[in-house]
Design a protein around this nucleic acid. Sequence first.
DNA 1: TCTTAAATACAACTAAGTTGCAAATATAGT
DNA 2: ACTATATTTGCAACTTAGTTGTATTTAAGA
Lengths: 127, 127
Amino acid sequence: MGILRKTKSVEIVVKQFDKDSSAISVITLVERLNSDMNKTTVYRILNKLEDDGVVHSFLGKNGHKWYAKCNNCSSTKHHDVHPHFQCITCGKVDCLDINVHIPEIPNRNVEIAQVLLQGQCDACIKN
Amino acid sequence: MGILRKTKSVEIVVKQFDKDSSAISVITLVERLNSDMNKTTVYRILNKLEDDGVVHSFLGKNGHKWYAKCNNCSSTKHHDVHPHFQCITCGKVDCLDINVHIPEIPNRNVEIAQVLLQGQCDACIKN
DNA sequence: TCTTAAATACAACTAAGTTGCAAATATAGT
DNA sequence: ACTATATTTGCAACTTAGTTGTATTTAAGA
Ligand SMILES: [Mn+2]
Ligand SMILES: [Mn+2]
Ligand SMILES: [Zn+2]
Ligand SMILES: [Zn+2]
């Protein structure tokens, strides 16, 4: 069940993804919004926003949860499945607009491919 | 720093991977070996076995740690990087002996590709 | 404005994984 | 085989991401 009421807290959370096209970890979000709302609220709002197709989630390199804005998803259709890239130097995480081809696996029916690439981002290569 | 002494506990842990070619989650291992050793010991031995190139680790769908036997790795060379498959029905996890091609990403230097495929395994498709 | 279902804060909880330290034990040297 | 000692283990306490229950607050329709 998604979001039913446009509360102040919901607005604040959504705004975080508007100003930043990168993904944001829940840990960061909880810390950043610490003075605005309780961490439980952050978790619950993100959960609902994902139901609504406003954001999508995935796990970063330590298994911690990250969220990023969806592009054209809805509560009925979440077609936002793509690889993510995490910089091992600065920690920044981005959605990748590429298609990783998964070969057919014998005797297995692959439904989801979760791909996390790690390396150095543009800014960190230059330093 | 890897394993220096062949203790009873080490033997028991290694044996788990000998009899089962599938990956094993740490959670399962801790539970299974509960009467043999402390959970701290399980964590520490697995950590050392990975240093030695005996096993390798990765994160399953909930971000929990899994281990599987290495094929021809050593403490100096861990060339055991491959996708893993987790059955969403029975939970079983296997190493995949396939190569997923990662395309070049502009402005990024990809060093590691962590691929977790999810779907149905052979046994679960048939049921 | 009133009503009420949804949302929130807060505190308590769960569980995976880690750390510090004292006790136990594997192994090399004698 | 005995001893010395560095490694390993058990145990308890801790850390932290994430969840849950519940009383209170609030959005929004009537
Ligand atoms: Mn994304
Ligand atoms: Mn593997
Ligand atoms: Zn970077
Ligand atoms: Zn299965």
